Simulated assay, not measured.
Amino acid sequence: MPSTHPQPSGEKTAGRTDLGRRMAARREALGLSREELGRRCGADGTYIAYLEEHAASPAIGTLARVADALGLTVDDLTGASAHRVAGRSTARRDSALVPLDETECRRLLSTHGVGRIATFTPEGPAVLPVNYLIAGPDIAFRTSAEAVTARAAGTEVAFEIDNIDDVTATGWSVLAVGELAAVTDPDEMHHLNTAARSQPWAGGARSHWMKVAPARITGRRVVHDP
């Protein structure tokens, strides 16, 4: 799971609902105070504190504004999508799949987050989620020295990220293909450790940095005609 942020002084945790916990966790991950979040969604810090700390039932319009300010959907904010695979909504008739140029693909990659590494193992193909960051032209992530991805050093792998919006039936995906290598240069490892804002979600000892040097990057987006 993500690294634990220290609880800001004066902010309570007792009595939080799932909505309140999600709001607080996302807000803190973005480095926002309650007042800053309130300004983004047209409320004040006191109301944000109330939503985070009490069993509140805000109107759907309020939820939508808070979710948008946090870069989430309402389902993400309320937890309705937590146990559901994205992409179950019905496709629209005016949908079209358009390619993304490399500049846009790299922009989407630079948002950081969770991606998937696809590699071959002695047991067959494997696709594994990793928390990643962009280091210059490379895609870097941490793992353990005994992990499948660590053992795949020196081989060609694929790295993929995507975003699916069930409400609008839209989405995009980016695929990078290149050689996977272990990071061994001390200065490079120091830079990566400094740039990493949180621990890998999987937890445990994951101090072994790996990087993918993309030889090609492609992407696609589902759009709707006007």
Rank of each mutant, 00 (worst) to 15 (best):
A69S: 12
A56G: 12
H83I: 08
H191D: 12
V177C: 09
L63Q: 04
M189G: 03
S95P: 01
L175N: 09
Y132V: 04
K12L: 07
V223I: 06
E102N: 01
A195H: 10
R26F: 07
A55H: 07
R27P: 06
E28A: 12
P186E: 03
D18L: 06
G124D: 02
D138C: 14
R142C: 12
N131P: 04
P137E: 02
H83M: 13
R220E: 07
T62V: 10
A82I: 14
A24Q: 12
T17H: 05
D185A: 12
A182Y: 00
G136V: 04
G10V: 02
A24C: 05
T218N: 00
P125G: 01
V66P: 05
S95L: 11
V114C: 00
S173W: 10
A153P: 01
L97R: 10
Y50D: 07
R107T: 09
E53T: 14
A213G: 08
C41F: 08
E102I: 09
W172K: 06
A150D: 05
V85S: 15
E160L: 06
A69Q: 08
G219I: 06
W201H: 14
T4F: 12
R142Q: 14
Y50I: 08
R16T: 08
S95N: 10
L37F: 02
T149R: 10
R220V: 05
D101L: 05
Q7D: 02
G136K: 01
G136Y: 11
R107M: 04
G45I: 13
P99E: 08
A150K: 06
A150I: 11
E35F: 01
W209D: 03
